[in-house]
């Protein structure tokens, strides 16, 4: 079996999943909202990119910037109009989750309505994907050359933001303990806005890239949501690097994983979503803290102690 193509595809998809999931993780870390409307931030990004490229005729990079901005504004609007008022009233987290479902319905079907009325129920950004150089039996394409480094760049920039700037550190502080952040003089509502813009922006960017890769429809954000959640949850739901790893694992599982199951066990590739679902259930039931909860040093110590005798479990 030629492995280059599936591996390359897995990395490409993994990059897209990572880019989509980072925002979901950031949302949950900072605001404790399980945001099902995250799907629509992706979808709007996809549509904005396609429309700006196809109809307005701007370059793909300008279109992606437009998608970033549009989804960032949408994310901000979601919070200001619904989440923040509910949060300030002290609503339980489940209320916020239900509200996110309401927001999802409003945005998704408004998009459906508009897309249908203008004859764009399916759309693809008209940017030719060209082969760059041969790679085994296949080719490295312009799309892969953009998507993979772009994702890594976003990851590096966000990491730098969270660890080397005052505002980024404050965001982490806020995720740790909001009340303590407030008494330390951190303006939590200003930071919350920043967080939502980052969430929307990265999701919009991911959606824009999808719209180059595949034909999209207004449901495509919702249809990707299972993978997005799986990537984020696998990483522990609040861990930045966990999400990056999670995204690539889901990329491989949905690509190489299902292909392997297909050739060896005859499992239909249509069952690919089951892998993501199984991952979510397994993580929730076995280790809700995901990768982030695995303490490497204690794990090694445990392995070393394994043949000696059973030790009381050390939780990370």
């Amino acid at each position: 079996m030629d492995l280059i193509l599936p591996v390359l595809n897995s990395i490409t998809l993994g990059s897209l999943f990572t880019l989509m999931a980072l925002g979901l993780t950031l949302t949950f870390s900072v605001t404790r909202i399980v945001n099902f409307a995250h799907a629509e931030l992706v979808a709007i990004g996809g549509y904005v990119t396609a429309v700006v490229t196809n109809y307005i005729g701007l370059s793909i990079y300008e279109s992606l910037v437009a998608a970033f901005v549009a989804s960032a504004i949408l994310a901000l609007a979601m919070d200001e109009l619904a989440f923040k008022p509910l949060y300030k009233r002290g609503s339980p987290t489940l209320f916020l989750l239900v509200a996110s479902i309401g927001i999802d319905l409003v945005v998704r079907f408004s998009l459906f309505l508009t897309a249908d009325a203008t004859g764009n129920i399916i759309i693809q950004t008209k940017v030719p994907i060209q082969p760059l150089m041969p790679l085994g039996k296949t080719y490295l394409t312009t799309f892969q050359v953009v998507v993979i480094p772009l994702t890594l760049a976003v990851v590096v920039v966000l990491h730098a933001l969270f660890h080397y700037t005052k505002v980024g550190k404050a965001l982490r502080a806020m995720a740790d303990n909001e009340d303590l952040a407030r008494v330390s003089g951190i303006k939590i509502y200003t930071l919350r806005r920043l967080a939502w813009m980052l969430v929307g922006g990265t999701a919009g960017l991911a959606g824009g890239l999808w719209s180059i890769y595949l034909v999209i429809d207004p449901d495509f954000g919702w249809n990707s949501l299972l993978r997005i959640f799986a990537a984020s949850i696998l990483g522990g739901f609040t861990s930045f690097w966990g999400t990056v790893i999670g995204g690539y694992i889901i990329g491989f599982a949905e690509n190489l994983g299902i292909a392997t199951l297909n050739t060896w066990f005859g499992v239909s590739t249509a069952y690919a979503p089951l892998i993501s679902f199984a991952i979510i259930v397994a993580v929730f039931l076995i280790k809700p803290s995901g990768f982030a909860g695995i303490d490497l040093s204690s794990l090694l110590a445990k392995l070393r102690g394994l043949h000696k005798n059973l030790e009381p479990e050390a939780e990370g």
Binding site: K169, A170, R172, A173, N177, L180, S184, G185, I186
Partner: peptide, 19 residues
């Protein structure tokens, strides 16, 4: 819960001086 557990000691001090 009077420190930020996932921040380093230095970062905690920086957060104290946030304003």
């Amino acid at each position: 819960d009077n420190v930020f557990p996932s921040l380093t000691v230095m970062e905690n001090l920086e957060m104290g001086a946030y304003a």
